[in-house]
């Protein structure tokens, strides 16, 4: 028996997200009295692979094949499901991100395994196997029973703390003989934003809404984000107007994020916006309308004009960071 954890690397390096998955998966393995096995695909060197052992993985499987260079959903699904069967996995764990969402459903059908998607806590019960997840876009939660022998969980990003353990992990290289003929996806071009902190990875996010009044006013907002080591985001009207790129849109139909700190500047806080940010640990709001719904979701608020408040925040952040 095992808990199989699918980890992702970016150009051979793991991000915090993978360590969160291992920390979470190791806890479930402990609850089930079994072992946590980390699965890595692609070219990752041993020093990097070994890091997965720092968070409780007792076995590390590394699969490398030219046929896994591009995410082809069904090719990956076949590789992971074959390994899940071989390792007698009772739980298969993935991140609730683009990759996890692409792979979990195919695994569900192949393994006949119920999926708990966007889970943010440890299972609330093992028998029946019950997970806790957000539903109705964050307006409610549900306890969902996975009525199957194998269960798939996709873990919401930044929802589980890292727990370091002694590292006794062994690394095994596997060659599952990936069949290249089934690869349907042909990538023609990759466009990456280099050196930019990803919104979904950021622990601090500074976000602007219509209250920013003009795309020309984003300077101090970006400066504040930089000073705090955070990423920038925006509300839907702002991205629809083309003031900011679509990748920054947070909300129900945009990015769903859960940073430690979300600072909303000039955002009124419509239900659809809150759906994307309500899992943030702290929400701070700056808005000129004291009755704006964002203040109901916020722990700290300033009623005032964004253009007057922002420079003061930038100034204070400079002083703090200067010390």
């Amino acid at each position: 028996m095992s808990v199989l954890i699918y980890t992702e690397n970016w150009d051979g390096k793991f991000k915090k997200l993978s360590f969160e998955l291992i920390s979470y998966g190791s806890k479930i393995a402990e609850m089930l009295n079994t072992k946590a096995i980390a699965l890595s695909t692609g070219n990752v060197d041993d020093d990097e692979l070994k890091k997965l052992g720092n968070y409780g993985a007792s076995g590390i499987l590394s699969v490398n094949s030219n046929n896994l260079n591009v995410l082809d959903n069904r090719t990956f699904v076949k590789v992971i499901s074959d390994i899940a069967v071989k390792e007698n996995a009772k739980v298969v764990l993935l991140a609730n991100n683009n990759t996890g969402k692409a792979l979990a459903p195919g695994l569900s059908v192949r393994l006949k395994a119920g999926v708990g998607a966007g889970v943010s806590k440890l299972p609330v019960s093992l028998d029946p196997f019950t997970v806790f997840k957000r539903v109705f876009s964050g307006n409610a939660y549900a306890r969902v029973v996975l009525n199957t022998d194998i269960r798939i969980i996709t873990l919401a990003q930044n929802s589980f703390d890292l727990t370091e353990t002694d590292n006794n992990a062994s690394i095994n290289k596997l060659d599952p003989g990936v069949d290249g003929s089934v690869v349907a996806t042909q990538v023609k071009e990759t466009r990456k934003q280099e050196g930019k902190l990803l919104l979904t990875d950021a622990e601090i996010v500074v976000s602007g809404g219509r209250g920013m009044k003009s795309p020309d006013n984003w300077g101090p907002l970006t400066e504040l984000a930089d000073l705090l080591g955070g990423a920038t985001a925006c509300s839907r009207p702002v991205s629809d107007e083309g003031w900011r790129p679509h990748e920054e849109h947070t909300g129900q139909t945009g990015k769903i994020i859960a940073p430690n700190l979300y600072i909303a500047i000039g955002i009124s806080g419509a239900t659809q916006h809150l759906a994307g940010v309500s899992s943030s640990k702290y929400i701070v709001a700056v808005n000129s309308d004291k009755d704006a719904p964002i203040f109901e979701a916020a722990q700290y608020g300033i009623v005032g004009d964004a253009m007057k408040v922002l420079p003061k925040l930038v100034e204070a952040a400079k002083n703090t960071r200067g010390k």
């Binding site: 006949k112 395994a113 029946p128 019950t130 409610a140 969902v144 029973v145 009525n147």
Partner: peptide, 11 residues
């Protein structure tokens, strides 16, 4: 079905 909702909760 493979899953069932046991109960809903408000945040």
């Amino acid at each position: 079905p493979l899953t069932s909702v046991e109960a809903f909760e408000m945040p």
